[in-house]
Every structure is written in C-alpha cells, then in structure tokens.
Amino acid sequence: MMNALRLEARLSDHDRLYDAFIRMHDGLSEAESQKASAKLVLLLANHIGEPEVILEAIERVRADMGDGSD
C-alpha cells in the first residue's frame, strides 16, 4: 500500500519550529533565501523517502496558491 500524505497535526513545539524556519533566512539575500528553502525541502524529501507523498504535497500547495495572482 502506498502511503498518503498525512494531514492530521503530528508535530509538537510549533512555535520553536516556526521561529527556526524564519531564522534560517537571517542575513540572506532574496536569492540565497530561495536556495535555502530548496535545500530544506530536499533534505526533508529525502527523509520522507516516498515520491508519491511528496508529489501529493506539491499538488496541494499548488492548489492552495490558486492562480498565483493573490
């Protein structure tokens, strides 16, 4: 059975994580920031290890962004 993207709340320490997400970009230019986010995704994707789950997350994000015109 292929696993689906899990959507129930699973983490603890949300505030600390959120802070770390933001601080990861401290002092970085816009372009460097984009690269940093990409590196984070790459490492987490490897940890998850299931392409279908990751693809499902990508689809969800894309749907959430609408047509991109705010």
């Binding site: 372009a31 984009q34 690269k35 940093a36 990409a38 590196k39 790459l42 490492l43 490897n46």
Partner: peptide, 24 residues
Amino acid sequence: TPVSRAWRDAVLELARTHEAIRPF
C-alpha cells in the same frame, strides 16, 4: 528562471556534503 537556478544550485551545493542528494 531564477527559481529553477536556485533549486539547481541548492542541489549542487548540498550534494557536496550530502550523498543522498547526489542522485538529483
């Protein structure tokens, strides 16, 4: 595009120290 360059470079930089990223 700038985004595709950022991702490309992210892969290349990270792959130096992280073997798991090299297949990208």
